[in-house]
């Protein structure tokens, strides 16, 4: 089947706002900003009801802005809950497709690390998040003046292996262990996407897919 993709990105979008959607954990986070004076962030604990309320909360949250005010969208691409992440990614891809604006898929772990860096952490930040089958998601980021540098890409591995990797790390490291509820880092998600936007990145919606880390059958 031949599939034609719409032109990647508009050169000079009308909108000036960025919208971020975080659905990778049990709480649902939304953030919107024009990166000047207007900035709003909200989270809801929706759990399994996310699919039912996502759209009505989204449309209420957007006001007083409208869809045409958006210049780009950011979404948490995982790792995290498979279904929740998928709902956010499908919503974000469809919004970006229909509005013909860029979409930035941002790692949930990177958003957590960026939130930590804003607290003044200067050492490298290791993020550990529980995965299925006794494994953990892990990644290591270095805060920089322009955001984050990835030292270890998001990965999934057995806990022992991850701990061994951390103990063998030669530089100072701050470990952040996350159990649940990272929707509040949606603000960091938006900030990271904005950094990309400022650097001229205009990612196409088709490039953003969930990062699952694990497969239900294949090992």
């Amino acid at each position: 089947m031949s599939i034609h993709l719409s032109p990647a990105t508009v050169g000079s979008p009308v909108g000036t706002y960025g919208l971020a959607i975080h659905t990778s954990s049990s709480d649902f986070g939304l953030a919107i900003s024009n990166f000047s004076r207007d900035r709003r962030v909200q989270t809801w604990v929706l759990g399994r009801d996310l699919s039912m309320y996502l759209h009505t909360y989204l449309v209420d949250f957007l006001q007083p802005q409208s869809w045409s005010d958006l210049a780009f969208i950011a979404v948490a691409k995982g790792p995290g809950g498979f279904t929740g992440t998928r709902l956010g990614v499908v919503t974000a891809r469809t919004l970006a497709q229909q509005l013909e604006i860029p979409l930035f898929g941002i790692s949930s772990l990177a958003a957590i690390a960026y939130a930590e860096s804003l607290k003044g952490v200067q050492d490298a930040i290791a993020i550990q998040m529980k995965a299925q089958r006794g494994e953990v998601f892990g990644a290591i980021y270095q805060p920089t003046t322009t955001g984050l540098e990835t030292l270890l890409e998001d990965t999934v591995l057995p806990l022992e292996q991850w701990q061994h990797q951390l103990s063998a790390w030669s530089e100072p490291l701050k470990l952040v262990v996350i159990e649940e509820g990272v929707g509040s880092t949606v603000d960091s998600l938006l900030a990271l996407a904005h950094l990309k936007w400022q650097q001229g990145d205009r990612s196409h919606w088709a490039d953003t897919l969930p990062f699952y880390g694990q497969h239900p059958v294949d090992r």
């Binding site: 699919s51 996502l54 759209h55 989204l58 449309v59 869809w67 279904t83 998928r86 709902l87 499908v90 919503t91 469809t94 919004l95 229909q98 509005l99």
Partner: peptide, 15 residues
Amino acid sequence: LLVGLTAAKTIALLQ
């Protein structure tokens, strides 16, 4: 089901 339902709701909302 949720994938199609979510995409459809998003379009309905936008359009």
